[in-house]
């Protein structure tokens, strides 16, 4: 009986030892494993991306043709506006120099392609084809030409993982463009975002534009986040919240820009 018990104890001790050893080796090899796998999978991901895009182009040919014609018209109008804005920018620069203000130059942007999406169900993210070799670091904001997309969470030399603003774990300090009312934007894993911690008397309306406030220094000030589509009161009754429709179509991002400065 005693012999059996000691044998069992020894067995359990061995299992625990092996498990701890395996865990230590696993944890130690983590960066190497990630780099190896992400490097190896980068090119198949790019291939699948290309095939998916081509298949989509063939499948939605008529839709894309109509979209192209609409964009061509819009492009003509925008070119005129760009010329007018360029004049304003030059005038602004001259005035800045006159006022000796610190030049708030735009950050350096690193353009990247979206090659895949992370596999876990309970978070929202993307994997891009640029990494630390191109100067991307953890914590850098990620935007598209429409607005804020997310933040760099992990990076290896040839790829990076981005957490999108639709992830509930990502909080972005934001404000209403019109009234400068501040709040915190978080994701819901769905198509909409929530702006929390708004006081009862907050000056916010449906249709208001939400931008980054630049308060904690993690995101540059003034990046477009989205528009308010619904207002409500928290369950506690102490504060209000706003449902925000993101400016970026987060379920179908193809290219992003990483703001590196």
């Amino acid at each position: 009986m005693n012999l059996q018990l000691s044998k069992r104890k020894k067995r359990v001790a061995w299992i625990i030892l092996i498990w701890l050893g395996a865990w230590a080796v696993f944890d130690f090899s983590q960066p190497l494993t990630r780099t190896l796998f992400l490097h190896a999978l980068k090119h198949p991901f790019l291939l699948v991306r290309g095939i998916r895009r081509e298949a989509g182009a063939l499948f939605f040919f008529h839709h894309y043709y109509q979209e192209y014609q609409r964009l061509e018209r819009e492009n003509g109008l925008l070119q005129q506006q760009v010329l007018a804005l360029e004049e304003n920018r030059r005038e602004n620069n001259r005035l800045r120099v006159l006022l000796s203000l610190k030049d708030a130059s735009e950050g350096r942007m690193i353009a990247s392609k979206v090659i895949a999406h992370p596999l876990d169900t309970w978070s929202s993210g993307i994997i891009i084809d640029r990494g630390s070799a191109r100067g991307i670091k953890v914590g850098m904001p990620v935007v598209t030409y429409r607005g804020l997309a997310g933040r760099v969470m992990e990076t290896v030399s040839g790829a990076s993982k981005i957490m999108l603003i639709s992830d509930p774990n990502l909080g972005v300090s934001s404000m209403v463009e019109r009234s400068r009312q501040e709040g915190l934007i978080t994701g819901t894993l769905g198509g909409y975002l929530t702006m929390k911690y708004l006081p009862q008397g907050a000056d916010i309306e449906v249709g208001d534009t939400i931008i980054t406030s630049g308060l904690n220094g993690k995101y540059p000030k003034g990046i477009l986040i989205g528009k308010v589509i619904e207002l409500g009161t928290e369950f506690s009754g102490l504060s209000r919240y706003a449902v925000v429709e993101p400016a970026v179509n987060l379920s179908n991002i193809e290219e992003v820009l990483v703001v590196s400065q």
Partner: peptide, 14 residues
């Protein structure tokens, strides 16, 4: 391991 590499959650969970 492959799922952990391609996930945003903590390494080793899957």
């Amino acid at each position: 391991v492959l799922k952990d590499v391609l996930s945003l959650s903590g390494f080793g969970l899957h």
